[in-house]
Simulated scan of single mutants.
Amino acid sequence: MNFIKRENKETKSKTKKIKVYKVNTHKKAVIALWMLLIASFCFAVYKNFTAINIKTVHETKIIDKEIIDTHKIENFVKNFAKDYYTWQPSQASIDSRNEAIKKYLTDELQTLNVDTIRRDIPTSSAVQNVEIWSVKQDGEKQFKVIFTVDLAITEGESKKDIQSSYEVLVYVDDSSGNMVIIKNPTICSIPSKSSYQPKAKESDGTVDAATTGEINGFLKTFFKLYPTATEKELSYYVKDNALKPIGKDYVFAELLNPIYTKKGNQIEVSVSVKYIDQQTKATQISQFDLTIKKENNWMITE
């Protein structure tokens, strides 16, 4: 018995109690974390209800160009030019001119032009033609007009024709459409002949001599018929109305400088055709750029 008791005591003494640690839920750090979490949640809910939906809208703005009728401006300037550039070497004619141009000029310009034609002027002027070259808007209600005037100038027994170019500025009322010239005729230039020279077309050797002979024969036959041919007659040579009847009394003379270039199964033709106009008896040379193709026979397709 003593043995057993001793063993139990030793066993009890060897058994250790397991310590249990309790987490203190009231520590400041834990509280702060909870408060942060709650605040974040509340802020997310608030943003959800108050957020503004942002949508990107791509707008295409179409600007319609207003077509301005400039006929009245052109007529106004033409009538002004006829009165302004017409005079005789007499006081009555000069007074009549000065009175006439009051219908077109501002008061300031009328004063400016009082002495442009002097009492002792040795010439007389007659307007042969007025041609408007351009009318461009220059400001909200102003238009810049460039025109030429052809004059017949007489001085004693001498007569000569001259042409001059001028620029004026015309103001147009929105409501009434009334006009007044606010800039005196000012010398300027007009477009002249350009120095541009298009590149000359040349045969590139893609069409052999036999085919060239065939095409020459076809074109001569066609162009002899073409001036007086009906639509039905043309249909034997022309596809899809590529050329339409012209109904002219022309007599075919010859082909000039035909140039042929092969493109796939078609041939591009550049040719000048000389005709004699039976009404005027003058030579008429027409230039054609055609596309032809051989099916059962040669046909003009374009």
Rank of each mutant, 00 (worst) to 15 (best):
M1S: 12
K5Y: 04
E10A: 14
I18H: 08
V23Q: 02
V23D: 07
L36P: 05
S40T: 13
K47G: 10
N53G: 01
E59F: 05
K61I: 12
I62A: 08
D64G: 08
I67K: 11
E74V: 00
N75R: 11
T86E: 04
W87L: 05
P89Q: 06
S93R: 12
K103T: 07
Y104R: 00
D107T: 13
L112Y: 14
T116C: 12
R118C: 05
Q128Y: 03
V130L: 10
Q142N: 15
F143E: 00
L151R: 01
D161H: 10
D161F: 13
L169T: 06
V172N: 07
S175N: 12
G177F: 08
N178E: 14
N178L: 09
K183Q: 13
T186D: 05
I187A: 11
C188I: 07
P191A: 14
Q197T: 13
K199M: 14
D204Y: 01
D204I: 09
G205Y: 06
T206I: 03
V207M: 03
G217A: 15
G217R: 14
L225E: 05
A229I: 01
E231M: 02
S235Y: 07
Y236K: 08
A242C: 04
K248N: 13
Y250L: 15
P258K: 02
K263A: 12
N265L: 00
E268D: 15
Y275I: 03
I276H: 02
D277R: 06
Q278G: 03
Q279E: 15
T283K: 13
Q284T: 13
F288Q: 07
D289Y: 08
L290V: 03
L290Q: 02
N297R: 02
W298M: 09
